[in-house]
Structure formats: C-alpha cells, structure tokens
C-alpha cells in the first residue's frame, strides 16, 4: 500500500508543476461553457413541452462538466504509450508491485492534480458570476461528494483498462479516438443525458459512462433525489468491480504474450 501511495504522491506533485497550463485551460473552459450555455438557452427559449431538466439545472450541469473535465477517462496514459513503444515497459515489470494497481495508481495521480487545479477556480468563478448554483442542502452536498468519489474511481478503472489494451494495440491511437468519443457523448459532456430521446434513456442508464459525469452532476442539483442516490453509487460500484476484475485478467493474459520492443 505504501508503494502505491508514494507513486500517487510523487506524480501528483509533478502534475502540480503545470500551473500555467491549468490557467490557460481555465480560460478555454470558460469560453466553451459560455458557448454551450448560450446554445441551450436558445433551445429552452422556444421549448414547448416541459423538459426533464430546467434551464438553471442545465447551466449548473455545464459548469460542473467544465470543472470536472480533467477527470474523465478520455485518454490513455501518455507516459505508458511511450513506454510500451520504446520498450521501457520492461522496467515496469521489474517493480515489486502488482502491475494492475501500479497502472491504476498512475491513473489516479494523472487525474487528481489537474482536476483539483481546474475545479477549484472554476467553482469559484462560475459560482460567483455565471449561475452555478450551490447544492440545496448539506445532505445533497455529501451525497454529491460520495458520487464524485465513485465517479473518480470508475474513471480511473476505465482508463486503466484502456492502458492495458496498449499491450495488444501498441499505438493505442484507434482505441483512444473511439473511447474518447464514446465517453464524451455517453457521459453527458456534449449534452446532458436527460435531454437525449426517451427511448435511449434505458441504455444510457445501464452503460458505465453516466457514472463518471452525468449521475454525480444530477445528484448535485437535486435532479436525482437523495433517496435514489444509492442507485447511483451501486451502479458505479458494480462497474468498478467489473472493470477491475476484467482489467486484472487482461493484465495476466497481456503479459504472457507481451514482446518488449527492442532495447
């Protein structure tokens, strides 16, 4: 356990070095948030039927997405890609720790620091000036934090599986493009999931992606009531368990056939 903690904390501190990038990213994210919100506002202005979410909720949803954006499983570890292509992955195999949890820790570290750096200023700016509402009660806030923790672990588990897939595909280009697209659309980053057609809601609720963004955001704004939060958490936990089990099995099989590329 100590070894994994050391890996996380060392990489966390490394990621904290990129403060200028975080500042530039914040500006970009604000601009994107504005564009999305203006588009949704226009759609709502002429909406005839009542919608599954109010416009205020959609605005909060967009800002939460912009704040938590760095957490989503939309890429494989760039370091690992380089390692597998260059053959340095052999060093990873030499370390006296379990490879799955080693890569999982890398994923945790890569997500935590940038998420903090982007989320905190985004919450302050969007909360003060641009209509991000605070949670209605302390209970809702606590439920949201729990769902957010679940989302974080789920996101890391998905991205670890993507990293493991590199053992087969090496370049990872194709997997990455497809996964980032799927994660983007199905987690609610393009449009909030409740606004998708009604017939799609069942599939969306089943798939793992809503657990990384849509579900915790809707807990935050009370769109998912407190007495249904356990469904969100159970959904996240079930998928986390599935991804970990499959991931560990894949690591075993992948290592048996891994040919290290040169020296």
């Amino acid at each position: 356990m100590k070894a994994y903690r050391a890996i996380v904390s060392a990489r966390f501190r490394m990621m904290l070095q990129y403060r200028a990038a975080a500042a530039a990213g914040l500006g970009t994210q604000l601009f994107w948030g504005f564009i999305r919100i203006m588009i949704f506002t226009a759609f709502y202005r002429f909406a005839k039927a009542p919608q599954p979410m109010t416009l205020e909720q959609v605005v909060s949803y967009v800002w939460l997405g912009q704040a938590m954006f760095a957490m989503l499983p939309w890429s494989v570890e760039p370091d690992l890609r380089v390692m597998i292509r260059s053959g340095n992955v052999a060093y990873e195999l030499l370390r006296p720790v379990d490879l799955y949890w080693l890569w999982f820790s890398r994923s945790v570290a890569r997500r935590s620091a940038p998420t903090l750096l982007r989320a905190v200023p985004m919450f302050i700016i969007a909360g003060l000036f641009f209509g991000l509402r605070a949670p209605q009660s302390v209970g809702v806030a606590a439920a949201w934090l729990a769902a957010m923790a679940g989302a974080f672990v789920l996101s890391c588990a998905i991205s670890t599986i993507l990293s493991i897939s590199l053992l087969w595909t090496v370049s990872g280009e194709g997997v990455m493009v497809l996964m980032s697209g799927a994660a983007w659309l199905l987690s609610g980053m393009i449009i909030p999931l409740p606004l998708f057609p009604d017939w799609a809601q069942g599939i969306l609720a089943f798939l793992p992606f809503r657990g990384v963004a849509d579900a915790p955001y809707r807990v935050y704004m009370g769109n998912i009531p407190l007495n249904e939060v356990w469904v969100v958490l159970a959904h996240q936990l079930a998928w986390i368990a599935a991804f970990v089990v499959v991931g560990r099995a894949l690591v075993g099989r992948g290592l048996r056939r891994l040919a290290v590329q040169g020296g």
């Binding site: 759609f43 002429f46 005839k48 919608q51 493009v177 393009i190 449009i191 606004l195 057609p197």
Partner: peptide
C-alpha cells in the same frame, strides 16, 4: 466516427426541443 458523434448531439437536441 468521432465527428459523427458531434452531429449526434445536435440531432438529439432537435429531437428533444423540436
């Protein structure tokens, strides 16, 4: 595929709002 996803978002909004 990924740009197709992009347009899917627009389609879904029109489907919802008319």
């Amino acid at each position: 595929l990924i740009t197709g996803i992009d347009f899917l978002g627009i389609w879904a909004l029109f489907d919802r709002f008319g």
